[in-house]
Design a protein around this nucleic acid. Structure first.
Length: 196
DNA sequence: CGACTTTGACCCGCGC
DNA sequence: GCGCGGGTCAAAGTCG
């Protein structure tokens, strides 16, 4: 089974999303495209412009990584083009999230350092850096031009420190022992994440 | 007062 | 070489 290991909302937000009976009324809708709210068994589907390059996730515990962007890697044409100008070991993650809010809580602290109007889009792009002085991870946030309901969040690099607000899980369904090592395969490399 | 946001200026890569 | 557009810097403003 493939799980969207996401993405941005803090685990708290993520969990709450699945509890909403009438989520349309909530100011914050975070529904990843393709997630079934009925059976709580998420499956993935992405827009045709995106190619899912990492597909295998081993357990529902992936949802516990909602606080961490080190998960799935999605490549679209533009990002692939831009990547050529980046360092070889640069890791890019693009997440598409249905949300009214643009500033989704992913558990890390970010400092905004720029905002630019994007040609062809009525919505500006926001630039953020990780607030940790020793961490060079960057995040770009913009609204999907074709569907403004969605927010595209692009992460560049990997955090070299734990999230200041990690919540791994609080459900009986989760097997904590599985958290020791979670591995992912991307098109550029494979890596694993061990929680602190 | 420190942390964060805003915003105009600047830098740089790319296409022509 | 030049212009355009995306990305970054840094000073000023804001907020708690």
């Amino acid at each position: 089974m493939i799980y969207p290991s996401n993405i941005n909302p803090s685990f708290t937000d993520f969990a709450e999303t699945f509890k909403f009976d009438d989520y349309d009324d909530d100011a914050f809708q975070m529904i990843m495209e393709g997630i079934s709210l009925e059976d709580h068994s998420p499956t993935l589907s992405w827009t045709s412009s995106e190619k899912l390059l990492a597909t295998e996730v081993t357990s529902p515990l992936q949802t516990s990584l909602a606080t961490s962007p080190m998960s799935l890697e999605i490549e679209d044409k533009d990002e692939s083009k831009k990547r050529k100008r980046r360092k070889d070991d640069q890791v890019i993650h693009v997440f598409k999230t249905k949300s009214i809010k643009e500033a989704l809580d992913d558990g890390y602290k970010w400092r905004k350092y720029g905002k630019k109007p994007i040609r062809g889009s009525p919505h500006p792009r926001h630039y953020h850096k990780c607030s940790n002085p020793n961490c060079i991870v960057k995040k770009k946030i913009e609204r999907d031009t074709t569907n403004p309901q969605y927010v595209l969040t692009t992460y560049e690099g990997r955090h070299n420190h734990p999230s200041p607000s990690v919540v791994y899980c609080d459900s009986d369904d989760f097997d904590l022992t599985s958290l020791n090592t979670l591995s992912f395969q991307t098109h550029t490399n494979s890596y694993s994440h061990s929680p602190p």
